[in-house]
């Protein structure tokens, strides 16, 4: 176990989005001892974010990547955090996450989730993607799960969409973020291999 934990120190994980999933997942990875995180988000911390995202009242108004970097270092001063204050598209994904072994998809919008999955399938066939899908509301613990499609893992219930009537609430958001972080640990500590033939369909 000790040597497996040691692997985390030499691991670089990308976090695409620093909202509910990204901030909580990054914090879990920092506590577990991941050596390097590449975090990206364009947003600033708002008071409304504090119901589920890993920020504090005195950070409202700060850039999320700045605030999250500070919080991660307060927990684990040895962690290297590379912060990118930008809006991610395919080009940015390819550029900033190229040295990461695993990328955590932590976007809000479903079209952005698909964007990073398609980009990674095409350009990063050797990297694992750990995505979140379906985390709104409360209860239904046992609906949360992880499914693997080759080098892609998807965590969540795959059905509960965030709406006005079904907001994202802290426990379920953090639960899915923890599933993602737990999957990252398994990938790194057990040396999982992406399955062969994981490229994009191209007739």
């Amino acid at each position: 176990m000790k040597s497996k934990l040691q692997k985390l120190k030499g691991t670089c994980v990308g976090i695409a989005g620093c909202g509910g999933l990204g901030s909580n997942c990054a914090m879990a990875l920092a506590r577990a001892g991941v050596g390097r995180l590449v975090i990206a988000d364009f947003d600033v911390v708002s008071a409304a974010n504090l119901d589920r995202q890993y920020y504090f009242l005195d950070q409202v108004g700060q850039k999320k990547v700045q605030a999250l970097g500070d919080n991660l270092r307060r927990v684990n001063p040895d962690i290297a955090v590379e912060a990118h204050d930008l809006r991610l598209g395919p080009d940015e994904v390819r550029r900033i996450f190229k040295d990461c072994q695993v990328i955590v998809e932590a976007f809000d919008r479903a079209d952005m989730k698909l964007m990073i999955i398609e980009t990674a399938s095409e350009h990063f066939p050797d990297k694992f993607i750990v995505a979140g899908s379906g985390l709104a509301g409360y209860g239904n613990n046992n609906d949360l799960r992880t499914r693997r499609l080759g080098s892609l893992f998807i965590c969540g219930d795959e059905t509960s969409e965030v709406t006005e009537d079904l907001p994202p609430l802290a426990p379920r958001v953090a639960a899915v973020a923890a599933l993602q972080a737990n999957q990252v640990l398994e990938i790194v500590m057990d040396d999982l291999e992406p399955a062969n033939g994981e490229d994009v369909w191209d007739e």
Partner: peptide, 9 residues
């Protein structure tokens, strides 16, 4: 293999 991607993060 087909999996829904659901908004929320």
């Amino acid at each position: 293999e087909a999996i829904h991607l659901i908004s929320g993060g």
